[in-house]
Design a protein around this nucleic acid. Structure first.
Length: 664
RNA sequence: GCCCGAAUAGCUCAGCCGGUAGAGCGACGCUCUCGUAAAGCGUAGGUCAGGGGUUCAAGUCCCCUUUCGGGCUCCA
């Protein structure tokens, strides 16, 4: 019998009988690994465990707990979902079902435009569990395209995929589908059935790989059903998509479901109502909010801090109106490429006026209002500028995506030679502002020149892109590069922050622009009296004040740090007799500049403590007879710990002042 | 915009196979005057999102509108 030799990731080699599979290899290493294995990577390509290993291959056994293993588990669970739906819904057909972050989905089309209900999800999930309990093996079958077309005769979406695959990778619009096809017009399928060789068992078109059998699955939950267009285009039929989540263990599944519940608990829309911050009256229309006193107070503190930092960062403040004549937006080009997202014009005195979707053209007007010298550069113009964008009605989402919002927007006009240095200091400035709001983990994305449609010389793009890379490196930021992902007018950096429960939010953006200076004919007088064009940098740190506020609410779960809390301390007299002393304490703290509320002793103390806790006030101060005599307070700090008694009032004030100062 | 779902008191929700509206919290009033996360009793609150239809009868069934939620970027 022949023997093959394989090498493992740790560099060691192992000998196996000829024709051995990765499953055999795993078993030879240990029973634990064999049980945990879901798929293998053979010479860099993912393969089924059952596939024979060629002699001399390097093999990595992938377990359920790894990212690749989870990916496979989710992919295989999607197949079981499709199998269950096709079992239960006669006449149903299926499209695609990939693994996604945290889970998977599968798109279906039901006969006569049918749809799924929540009750259907329960039936489907129950059927999936039967299939998993039956431990059906996944078996790979390869066939030529013609046979596959016949096999999927009843499934037009599968046939469309096969045709795309069979036509090859460079056949235009569907090339992306074909890119993963096997060579020579063959396609692969996976068949799983009761293990009794039943020819009617479930078959799906799939590149694979899959887990060895359905018994490896089971830690999943179906989540929701929604509509999704075939191939993502609204010109195509709307399919029924079922989403699920799947994990390597029941423990992981439960942890994920717990995270979802936690995210719901932190939902800024719920907290905005509970904490009386913001509301969305139906009378205003979708995506338009009003700010209540407490929300407005927090927002004002955010804006004040932003202004303070910008003033210290060499920015000059400007203001601009909310509407402008069409000619401005023609010159800027927005009416050509952005009109879909703009509110429609209003006509006055025979002229069209548009609500502004962006602030940049106004800042350009400020720049252009007089002749500029190289000595004026870089010129940094800052504005908290409200803009209006016509977001799709189905896309608006609380404060995170709205139709009217305020950008912390600045435009920096810069000599070409100064761009790199400006970008480096700008990125550092941005991160330092975000850090003040309690974020410490960042992930950046650099988007470079699109291949065909772009403005400006290549050398200009190259310089700016090198500058952006250097800025990322000197800031020590982790980043990925989106090649060709830049806007037509310049390269950019986007910065995501990670919040308290690990979700990431895209906030800051830094965009280099070669287009607007050209369109508006901007120039400056250089030291040699020539008239070069400045480069423009658009940048926003919060992105949108409203959105950033929403993210902060979720990040802190409504429990704002003391410097941002709308009420920093609640003073509660133990009984009515202590009301005068409570008022005196509140007055003293207010004179220190703190935001303080008192509540009269009309309700039991426990009730009033609870109310202050529910409102997430950082400090509850209980004052009674002893305190009135000694000039002290009882301090009950947010976030647990026993209440402290007999704290001198001035000691507490100093402590709160230090906390506010540190923005802790 | 498109698909699915939802809309009942200020808030959270119940209301069965169509028979004429309920609870808890909150608010208000009275009692209680209290040392750290919900005192007791009572009172008021609803054109069941809006409009149309079916029916002897509609919160409930059907249609339209509005608003809200989830999804529509992840490519066998």
């Amino acid at each position: 019998m022949s023997v093959i030799s394989v090498s493992l990731p740790d560099g060691s080699a192992r000998e196996l009988a000829g024709g051995s599979s990765a499953a055999d290899l795993a078993a030879s290493i240990g029973p634990r690994l064999a049980a945990d294995a879901v798929v293998a990577v053979v010479d860099g390509a993912e393969k089924d465990l059952a596939a024979p290993i060629p002699d001399g291959a390097s093999v990595e056994i992938v377990t359920a707990a790894s990212d690749r293993g989870l990916h496979t588990i989710r992919h295989s669970t999607a197949h079981v979902l499709a199998q269950a739906v096709l079992d239960l819904c006669p006449g149903a057909t299926f499209a695609i079902g990939p693994p996604i972050e945290h889970g998977f989905y599968y798109d279906f089309e039901l006969p006569d435009g049918g749809t799924f209900t929540d009750a259907d999800l329960e039936r489907i999930e129950a059927r999936m569990r039967e299939i998993i309990d039956a431990d059906q093996p996944f078996r790979r079958v390869e066939m030529v395209a013609e046979d596959a077309l016949e096999l999927f005769a009843q499934h037009p979406y599968k046939r469309a995929i096969i045709e795309a695959v069979a036509m090859g990778a460079d056949s235009g619009a569907d090339g992306d589908l074909a890119s993963e096809a096997s060579d020579g017009g063959t396609v692969s399928c996976y068949r799983n059935d009761g293990g009794n060789g039943d020819a009617d068992g479930f078959v799906d078109l799939c590149l694979g790989p899959h887990v060895p059998s359905t018994g490896r699955l089971g830690h999943f939950a179906l989540q929701r059903v929604s509509g999704a267009y075939w191939r993502g285009s609204e010109r195509n039929p709307m399919l029924q998509r079922i989403y699920g989540t799947a994990w390597a263990s029941g423990k992981d599944l439960r942890a994920h479901l717990h995270r979802l519940a936690e995210a719901e608990r932190r939902d800024h829309r719920r907290l905005a109502a509970e904490l009386d911050l913001v509301s969305w009256p139906a009378e205003l229309g979708p995506g338009l909010a009003v700010w209540h006193p407490k929300g407005a107070l927090v927002r004002t503190l955010m804006e004040d801090y932003s202004r303070q930092r910008h003033a210290g960062g060499g920015y000059e403040f400007v203001f601009s109106p909310h509407i402008a004549k069409g000619v401005l937006w023609e010159t800027s080009g927005h009416l050509d490429f952005y009109a879909e997202s703009m509110y429609p014009p209003m006509e006055m005195d025979g002229t069209d006026y548009y609500p502004k979707p962006m602030n940049c053209p106004f800042h350009v007007m400020v720049y252009r209002s007089s002749q500029r010298s190289y000595r004026d550069l870089p010129m940094r113009l800052f504005e908290l500028g409200a803009v209006y964008r016509y977001e799709l009605s189905g896309a608006v989402h609380g404060l995170l995506r709205s139709r009217g919002f305020t950008q912390d927007d600045a435009h920096i006009f810069c000599a070409r030679e100064g761009v790199a240095e400006e970008l480096a200091s700008l990125l550092e400035f941005s991160l330092s502002v975000l850090e003040a709001f309690g974020f410490s983990e960042f992930q950046a994305r650099l988007s470079t020149r699109p291949v065909d449609k772009y403005v400006g010389e290549e050398a200009l793009w190259d310089d700016a892109t090198i500058g952006l890379r250097a800025a990322l490196t000197s800031a020590g930021l982790d980043y990925e590069t989106d090649e060709g992902g830049g806007a037509f007018y310049g390269p950019k950096i986007d910065v995501d922050v990670r919040d308290a429960i690990g979700r990431s939010w895209q906030l800051s953006t830094i965009q280099v622009d070669f287009n607007l200076p050209e369109r508006f004919g901007l120039e400056y007088v250089a030291s040699d009296s020539s008239r070069p064009r400045p480069v423009m940098i658009h940048r926003a740190l919060f992105g949108s004040v409203e959105r950033f506020f929403g993210v902060l609410v979720e990040h802190y779960a409504g429990a704002f740090p003391a410097w941002l809390a709308p009420v920093q301390a609640a003073v509660l007299p133990v009984a009515a007799a202590h009301a005068d002393y409570a008022a005196q304490v509140a007055g003293t703290l207010r004179s220190h500049g703190f935001r303080v509320e008192t509540s009269p002793a009309e309700e039991p103390l426990g009730k009033r403590v609870r109310n202050a806790k529910v409102a997430k006030v950082p400090y509850v101060l209980v004052v009674g007879g002893d305190d009135a005599t000694n000039g002290t307070v009882g301090v009950n700090a947010r976030g647990g710990g026993k209440p402290e008694r007999d704290v001198p009032l001035e000691a507490f004030a100093a402590r709160l002042a230090a906390e506010v100062e540190a923005r802790a």
